[in-house]
Amino acid sequence: MHDIYNFVSGPLVWVSFIIFFGGSLYRLISMAVLAKKKDVIVYEYMSLKYGLRSILHWITPFGTVKWRKNPILTIVTFTFHICLIFIPIFLSAHIILWKESWDISWWYISDTTADVLAVVVIASCVFFLIRRIVLPEVKYLTSVSDYIILAIVAAPFITGFWTYHQWPGFKIMGIIHILSGEIMLAAIPCTRLIHMVFFPFTRGYMGSEFGAVRHAKDW
């Protein structure tokens, strides 16, 4: 147990962070290089002003027609994405680990808050799962990989919740929790989770085309 723990909380953390940052950086750079070579158009038309204008509308809840037309989805997707990033960064248990290893720390949320937010994330994942199974237009686009990605995202929250509440097998679950978090980080540059990294560029480019060239809104 100690060996496994030391391994998953030591070298594997490094591996996952290196894959996450290195891989994301690699994806970004290779995209930029390829664009320079084959899609120079993107550089020509990319506009900071109109790109940001579009991005800001899309990252604002109810800031676009699409978001306003689907209020439930909008609420779920925004809370889900915010919590997804917010919880792991501001969870006291995580910060203590940062403090122990690097002697750095920052503001954190109470465990009760984190507990509630984790339920929100898990419930959102269930929402997305049901959506995938039930809505024909989503089901039609769904492949096995979509379920795997959803599972990768949900796993750290389910296992973290389990461990925190010390349900049966929580020690093993704690190890799985660490491992699943690492898998999720490492999966970001390797799967469609890369949308997290690419969003500003795809949206920004469309915003630039619509704003600077076509003088129209894209939201």
Binding site: H2, Y5, A93, T163, Y164, K171, G174, I175
Partner: peptide, 10 residues
């Protein structure tokens, strides 16, 4: 020492 509890909830 590879002995004793190490995880939060332990």
């Amino acid at each position: 020492k590879k002995a004793g509890p190490i995880m939060c909830s332990e």
